[in-house]
Design a protein around this nucleic acid. Structure first.
Lengths: 347, 347
DNA sequence: ATATAAAATGTGTTCGAGCACATTTTACGC
DNA sequence: GCGTAAAATGTGCTCGAACACATTTTATAT
């Protein structure tokens, strides 16, 4: 157990006043060579960490942080983020913190730009956002950079050196997890990657998952598997899928690369096929219902709640306690079946 | 955003001194009816939460908390706990906190009692412990209770009303998860529950898992499965297991109820059977090696690190920020295969 | 009415860091 | 040696809650 020193203790030990110690610690100058040496000698001896409680009390600042999410009303995938943010507030709200949550329309780049502009006008201390649109996100990141506003991102990466911190998952590995799951369930046969076109461009993320998925099967020693691929898009979703299934009777497993997995499950449960293994993404209510019925075998949980939680927590701890924000945090890729889904859903 | 009031603000609003406000808030008496009414009127109007930073600064107490674990040298299952505790210290160590980690021999009830006695003599503010031995844990819990020392437990439950807080997993559900996994992999055939006798009594936990496992298969509509059971114990581990496998040629899956799953995997990999699906517990290095080789299909992660993390964090936040400690926290039951094991292992 | 106890209320200090400002010391020119 | 600017150093107040202690008000008895 290390003794806790105060600047007053150090001042006494060095034979100077606490003002001088303070100037040395903060390198504010106006300190003679001799005094500097005396104080540094003490500081080298002991490990002094200033009392952050006292520091915060003196500071007495309410940090203002904006959180910018795609509107959960447009895509319920984002719903759990709110509870992640609430958790952070419950945890760190005792220190003065002002969190403002804002939404943009995930189908509209304009909405994204507009809301970011509004945020910039309020000059918050930091921003946590989902950089859904590559180009536009890059632009707003540069604006924040110029304004000296710290930004953290989560959910998806963008190629911008303005991004200082990212929370998310390894999507390539995520594809491998899906592959391994289908491999475990099906033993052999044809497996299909199924992309469902979203209104907004997440094609890059789907590709990363696909690559991981293929990468796994490619490396298998005996070629028991064929990896097929199918792109679905409304309104001819049902027709294309129907044709695809008829064309591939040996199909034993399907990997859906988006959270719209339930749409495939809806389709499959109406046909009375032999069971086709189904692995997809995210704990939407619709997906969980299929998971419990057995139409979906496994869901991969991308954990938007935890992503928002850590993103916000890191920012606040950075301001309050001067902690470093990790450049990247890759969260575990949670495998969920009908039996362990419970605790993941209490949000 | 709510304005932050201080006791001085309230004093001014109520037309009294901050001393009176303080007495009202802390119900210290010595306040006239009229003053009480005036202050309470203001307190009802606004929601006043005292500045916990200032409170802590005034308090200026270093809380002393003991953590008591089974010795990781005797059972490496406990190794990750240390890093969970380190995480808490990294997070909350800026407030004066003195955490002392102690170990007991998981094969010796005497060791458990001895170390607890030693802890009681140091009169810490709180204790976090693994109540491995039912009877002895119950006894020490009562001692702590009598001494007014707050205790939280994790990993396993004991029937004692002295237990105020428990962090762990739902073991019955955990057995169901294992069952569902074997069901997913094997489709049909015989499945076996395999208990490996430990030096210390965790029979009750193994039973809970067994009940969950059976419960799942019992509820399946068509009886494609037989659930078998086998108890293994050194030194005739290999013989008994060998006989069991020969006696049950239709066996397609095994559920091992302890972290010694690798011992079964070691055995299976030396026989050149057809593949028998294997599901077990915990991310010991030996287990993970088998997981990556494919000898073990799934591991259920009991997450000792997170258990220790939350157990300790709750205690500290209780003392520092007056937060309530949940009576029970059941952590997610993590399903781990060869592909998502990575992020769980960075400890 | 007045002394005196008792109750009520107000004041001032503490916790540790940070910073403004006051005070002291040093340097340098004449 | 002295004056003055500049550099160095020290002092004191602030943040908000808590609590000890000082002061004022009220109640009760004589």
């Amino acid at each position: 157990m290390t003794t806790k020193y105060t600047i007053r203790d150090i001042a006494k030990m060095a034979g100077v006043s606490k003002g001088t110690v303070d100037r040395v610690i903060h390198k504010r100058g106006k300190v003679s060579e001799t005094a500097l040496k005396k104080v540094n000698a003490i500081l080298d001896d002991i490990d002094f960490t200033p009392n952050l409680i006292a520091k915060n009390l003196k500071n007495n600042k309410v940090y203002h942080i904006c959180v910018l999410l795609p509107d959960p009303k447009k895509d319920s995938y984002w719903e759990p983020c709110a509870s992640g943010i609430d958790d952070v507030i419950a945890e760190l709200g005792v220190f003065g913190i002002n969190i403002e949550t804002l939404f943009f329309d995930p189908t509209s780049t304009k909405s994204f730009l507009d809301v970011n502009l509004a945020i910039q006008n309020t000059t918050p201390d930091a921003v946590l956002l989902v950089p859904l649109f590559f180009k536009e996100a890059g632009i707003v990141m540069q604006h924040y950079d110029a304004l000296g506003i710290r930004v953290s991102t989560f959910n998806n990466t963008i190629e911008s050196h303005a991004v200082k911190s990212f929370i998310g998952q390894d999507l390539h590995q995520s594809g491998r997890v899906a592959a391994k799951l289908l491999h475990s369930i099906t033993q052999k046969g044809d497996v299909a990657i199924l992309h469902i076109d979203e209104k907004y461009k997440n094609a890059v993320f789907m590709q990363e998952k696909e690559q991981g998925f293929r990468n796994y099967f490619d490396a298998l020693p005996n070629a028991d598997y064929n990896v097929l691929k199918c792109k679905l898009k409304h309104p001819d979703f049902d027709n294309v899928l129907s044709d695809f299934l008829e064309a591939n009777p040996k199909l034993t497993g399907i990997f859906v690369t988006t959270s719209k997995t339930y749409q495939v499950a809806d389709f499959l449960q109406n046909k009375d096929h032999k069971h086709i293994a189904l692995v997809g993404y995210d704990l939407l209510n619709e997906n969980v219902a299929h998971l419990k019925k057995g139409t979906i075998d496994f869901l991969i949980h991308q954990n938007p709640k935890q992503q928002a939680y850590f993103g916000l927590k890191f920012l606040i701890e950075h301001f309050l306690f001067e902690k470093d924000i990790p450049a990247q945090l890759l969260l575990p890729i949670d495998i969920v079946n009908s039996e362990n889904v419970g605790p993941f859903m209490r949000d």
